[in-house]
Design a protein around this nucleic acid. Sequence first.
DNA 1: AATAAAACTTGTCCTATGGCAAGAAATGCT
DNA 2: AGCATTTCTTGCCATAGGACAAGTTTTATT
Lengths: 193, 193
Amino acid sequence: MPEPHFLSNVFLSKNFSTEEQNTIISHFKKVSFDKNDFFLKEGQTENQYWFIESGFARSYVVDTEGNDISTNFYSKGDIVIDWTSFFLRNPTRENIQALSDCVAYQLDFDTFQTLFHSLENFREHGRTNLVSSYFKLKQQSIAMIADQAKDRYLRLMKEKPQVIQNVSLKHIASFLGITDTSLSRIRKEISEE
Amino acid sequence: MPEPHFLSNVFLSKNFSTEEQNTIISHFKKVSFDKNDFFLKEGQTENQYWFIESGFARSYVVDTEGNDISTNFYSKGDIVIDWTSFFLRNPTRENIQALSDCVAYQLDFDTFQTLFHSLENFREHGRTNLVSSYFKLKQQSIAMIADQAKDRYLRLMKEKPQVIQNVSLKHIASFLGITDTSLSRIRKEISEE
DNA sequence: AATAAAACTTGTCCTATGGCAAGAAATGCT
DNA sequence: AGCATTTCTTGCCATAGGACAAGTTTTATT
């Protein structure tokens, strides 16, 4: 019996007919990235929509002072994309880099558009993914104002323990909006409790 | 000669046929809000998509300690909405309140859906609006990490001078992630330069 | 105009977090 | 295994911004 396709966990039979599933999945292409490879580099226009099957990736921007700020982490099942560059078709300010070897499935923009405009379920799905990303960004954004660094770290530990395990302290720190030094102290504090 | 409809500045003839424009505009309903009226209250599920023709509004959340944190400001031409509550159909954590008397045009969710799934240009337009909001949120979010409070204020002054003119200091301060006291000092510093 | 309520400013002191630098520990490379 | 590099920890001091409280100014209400 053939193993079900990874993407059948993404385009669930509850939301798509078998025919739709097959159509959609047939347009994806499996790709591999080695550790440190870039999914996307600053200045490029995002042309792919990736679902990650294995491995870890990180997106980051480099600010005017040259500081590297992590904007997100990606692991199994996540969508690796810069939404705004993909949909607005303009050059990105972000970099997305593999933190380990990765396997992913990709769809290019034109194919995405064809599916988006021809399949109602596909566009509902795409819109939900985008809105979910918006929601997470907003939560993080509010936490930056309302919560202390320690609480943001505890929340990340709870919500994405795989990130804590697999990502270096300095990348986590910049995501939380603090320095690696401060995060190290926060970790110590937590371990002493 | 009849004055062109406000919404023809939103659904531009460059993107829509005259017929599409008429169809879309005919579904909107003009509504008025008095100062301090709520477009949306915490706990409700957002069911409207508003384009604001005149007046000012503010969205905010109340955090666990009871602090009021402004998340956005809206003025002429802006879309007043909680995207995630509207599309995910779940209760919002946000409040959106008129800061002055407002006139707006609204579309309810079901009508939005009908237009979204039947008019390709309408869904491109809707998606672009959503992605643009995402982009702005991300920029603000990065600025919270990379820039000092004073720089965030200067950026807001440049990008939304109407907000500086029309919104109280404490609301601007919470949007910038600082206290009203600090913003008052920042203003003084700027005026002394 | 008189009063009350908000909005804003300013002073004093405090705290979370940053900057820098030195070590220690872990990881990668030959 | 041995060396280099990166990652992480820790100490010391600095600073942006917060907490609180007292004024002052502006705005709204009668």
